[in-house]
Amino acid sequence: MARIRAHGLVVEFPIYGASGRSLKNAVMRAATGGLLAKDASERIVVRALNGVSFELREGDRVGLVGHNGSGKTTLLRVLAGAYEPVAGTIEIEGRVASMLSISLGMDPEATGHENIFLRAAIMGMRPHEIAPLIEEIREFSELGDYIHMPLRTYSSGMAMRLAFAISTCVTADIILMDEWLSVGDAGFAKKAQERLARVLDRAKIMVLASHNEELIRDNCNRVIRLDHGEIIAVEDLGAQAAALRPMMPVPAAAT
């Protein structure tokens, strides 16, 4: 059973050292960024999410779209459990795997092998869960005996392959992604996409934030549009997918 229920989520970032009111008025309604407002104690705050409500059920593949600063990443971090909302409630049922930053916590001085355990611990996996997967990770990331060398000796491609292999060995009910994961040269990229697809297939809910409309149309069945921290539209993709297209042009080629 997997479900996410958000009701009236508000997330505000306090800005310390911002110089008072004039600045506030000037940037009150900037083209990008969250709403600037003042909270009860007269501090300037950025309201990154402003009363966001939605419900996600099993089978939902949700694309989050919006400008830079519209609240996509903040919403993902709330779903990941990092930020607790200032107001509103969020209920999450199911195990969440966050692929927001797949090399977080990796230690350049530690070996590849040690880094597998490190990343696993940070992702909430216990040693006995990750241990049987090590051989598979080593094989997939094509590291060979480098697995016993410190991470700093790796090329950036090798380090990315390792991070990708570890992050995609989780089994989770809910998967969060900030932009689509893609790593490596052409040959590896194909292999990586297949692996990612398998992980996503197993997941019951996926939430993907992206600027790439085409990518979202290919991989999602619902779209949540955010602007200034508010939901401006929720669309069901499928039959109307084509009708959606003219609303927002594809910004750039798929990467």
Partner: peptide, 9 residues
Amino acid sequence: EGYIKQVRL
């Protein structure tokens, strides 16, 4: 900071 902002620990 990096951990606190990204993951639930």
